[in-house]
Amino acid sequence: MFVTPAFAQAAGAAPAGGMGAGDLLIQFAPILLLVVIFWLLIFRPQQKRMKAHQAMLSSISRGDTVVTSGGLVGKVTKAVDGEDLEVEIAQGTRVKVTRGGISDVRSKSTPVNDNKAS
């Protein structure tokens, strides 16, 4: 029924100048730290992998052994146009593959492992 003295007191005064620049920086420091961590651990390595993959795709030439993203292994017989390649996956069997569908390029000197007994 009666108001207790703790509730009856007036609220404390607010700080005179509001929030300072240092206080604002301290509040945003964890967010900035997370952005830096994401950049260093996720975005930057992904960009490096993409650049290396693009360089690998642009250096494909006739005679290279390639692995498609579907797992087919074959030898490049010719570049049909800028984006497409003709790949021989078996003797007399040639398929047209886009450069974006190539996941790995093996050099001409790297033999394909046929699991044949010597």
Rank of each mutant, 00 (worst) to 15 (best):
D64N: 07
A29D: 08
V35M: 14
D64R: 00
P45T: 06
I102K: 02
T110H: 05
V95L: 12
A11M: 10
R49G: 01
T65F: 06
M50P: 00
V105S: 00
S69A: 10
Q27M: 14
I31T: 13
G17I: 11
H53T: 03
T4C: 15
H53Y: 01
H53V: 01
G63F: 02
G22A: 15
M56P: 05
S69T: 13
T98H: 12
M1R: 06
M1F: 04
V80S: 06
K78L: 08
I102A: 03
T65W: 00
L72C: 04
L34T: 11
F38N: 12
P5A: 12
G92R: 07
V105M: 01
R62E: 13
L40I: 09
D23M: 15
R44M: 06
R62M: 09
A13H: 08
I89G: 01
S107G: 13
T93Y: 07
V105T: 00
I42F: 09
T98S: 09
Q27L: 15
V67E: 06
V112L: 08
I31N: 11
E86K: 03
R44Q: 09
P111S: 10
K108E: 12
S107N: 10
E83V: 10
V95Q: 11
Q9K: 14
S103R: 04
L57W: 05
M50N: 11
S59K: 07
V35R: 03
A10Y: 10
R49A: 08
P30G: 07
T98Q: 10
P111K: 13
T4D: 15
L41S: 08
E83M: 07
S107Q: 11
A8E: 15
V76T: 01
A8D: 13
L34Y: 11
V66W: 05
K48C: 02
K78E: 08
K78N: 05
L24W: 12
A10R: 10
A6N: 13
S109N: 09
S107V: 03
V66N: 02
G18P: 07
G18F: 11
D84E: 07
V87E: 00
Q54R: 05
K116I: 08
D104V: 02
R106E: 01
E83R: 05
S118G: 14
T98V: 09
V112C: 02
A90M: 07
V3D: 09
E86N: 03
S107L: 03
F43G: 04
P15T: 11
F38K: 06
L40P: 06
D64L: 06
V97A: 04
E83C: 00
S61Q: 10
G18S: 10
Q9L: 13
F28L: 12
G18W: 06
K108F: 02
V36F: 14
G63N: 04
S118A: 15
K108R: 13
T4R: 13
L33S: 14
F38Y: 14
Q9E: 15
G70F: 02
L72T: 04
V67K: 05
A29F: 15
G22T: 14
T77Q: 07
S118Q: 13
V67A: 00
I37N: 01
F43C: 06
R99F: 03
A14N: 11
A10F: 10
K48S: 07
A10G: 10
R44E: 08
A10N: 11
M56W: 03
V35A: 14
I102Y: 03
R106D: 04
R106Q: 12
T68G: 01
S109T: 12
A79L: 15
V35P: 00
I89E: 01
V112K: 05
P45R: 09
E83I: 08
S59Y: 02
